[in-house]
Design a protein around this nucleic acid. Sequence first.
DNA 1: GCATATTTGTCCGTATGTATA
DNA 2: CTATACATACGGACAAATATG
Lengths: 246, 246
Amino acid sequence: MSSTEGSTDWAEKLADDRAAVGRSSTAQRVAEILRDRITEGLLPPGTKLSEDAIGAALGVSRNTLREAFRLLLHERLATHELSRGVYVRVLDANDVADVYRVRRLLETAALRNARSAPPRVRDKLEMAVVEGEKAAAEGRWRDVGTANMHLHQAIAGLSMSPRIEEFMRQLLAELRLAFHVMNDPKTFHAPYLTWHRRLIEPILAGDMDAAERMLHEYLDVAERQLLDAFSRLQPPRKQAYRPVSL
Amino acid sequence: MSSTEGSTDWAEKLADDRAAVGRSSTAQRVAEILRDRITEGLLPPGTKLSEDAIGAALGVSRNTLREAFRLLLHERLATHELSRGVYVRVLDANDVADVYRVRRLLETAALRNARSAPPRVRDKLEMAVVEGEKAAAEGRWRDVGTANMHLHQAIAGLSMSPRIEEFMRQLLAELRLAFHVMNDPKTFHAPYLTWHRRLIEPILAGDMDAAERMLHEYLDVAERQLLDAFSRLQPPRKQAYRPVSL
DNA sequence: GCATATTTGTCCGTATGTATA
DNA sequence: CTATACATACGGACAAATATG
């Protein structure tokens, strides 16, 4: 284990990296749990995240829990009202429209850089599409939604900019809050499987003009579908607190 | 004060708004103080932000201070290493390059939307330029830098997207960390005053092609200047802790 | 409109774990 | 390897704000 030189030094570094990334504070672990519960819909938008209730449920102190809340607030998955507490974020139609406005901007810009992206980055497109098709074949429709996000994350990755990738990650996580207005995940996600195939084909073939047209179409359809769903159910603005077991 | 109706109802709302925005937690106020100290260079990049030392200096508890740190971490003004603490962010050349990559993308996209932006939004361009010229005339060179950021914030505002404005705010705050490598603020900021005039002229005239060309030139020059300064002084990576009075 | 109960905001003290000299 | 300094996490306390009857 001591510093033997030669072909084994990489092993040491890898072990160090693993140790480094594996380490996470309890606040981060708590935030991860809450993030999962939010995205899977157990904690729907508008739900109050009570310090007392959740702290007791997860067995962490209030101070630690508040640190976890901060993380979710940064990710825009929750909102904070002074002296009133933290709530699962409620997106309105304006939010959805703005997210798609930015997605158009970032994703098309990333696309225009696709030729300069190394193969390793472009491969992720295909991987995400396959991931979605596999999940659909096995009926895991929520995972189809996850694969959808991975595809668009991969498109953003074509920009080769860490900050754009990070920004896109935030946007997609935020958008996931809006997916909850779609009651049936299958009829919501299924149509996108063919869209995705048609989308990455021109990208990988290098026909960027076609790809950009396709992407615009795609985003227009997706946005309209979400906004239609929003307009159908306006009322549920302020959600009451509903005790849940975590 | 009770709900008198008629022409005074707006007064009530305004008072409520003022109360709402005026309210800020001590964590937010602490974060603001630290943000100022960082951007003005009193806490240079690499400085360790000790919980004990700063908490004592500002007279707040560690819990509150940690909440303030979270805010700075979110703004990328600080970095966090588990069990090692929080440090003022150190930008490297890659960071600078990435910030300019994203700026090109966002600012040109915002520019293309300038025609659709309402006059109230476009007016902010002129206001920012005037602000810079006024500060320069009075020798307040740090304020010239602030006005510079306001101009580019205004350009991002042309996109009419809250998320893009927010993203740009982050980018510019981050970039300000890099400004510290320029030793003399006057010779650094002064040349941009004329650039700014030449930049907003075509925008306000509606000649967006010319504006976009000008913006590209501008960003290229600014990026090169910063990167040159970086390459000249590589060494100072890990900065030692230096006690300061806040 | 008032009084009460609940919840959040802030601070403290301490015990434990981790990194570095 | 030990010692020291520091961050992490916990639980308790109290004031202030908010919600409830």
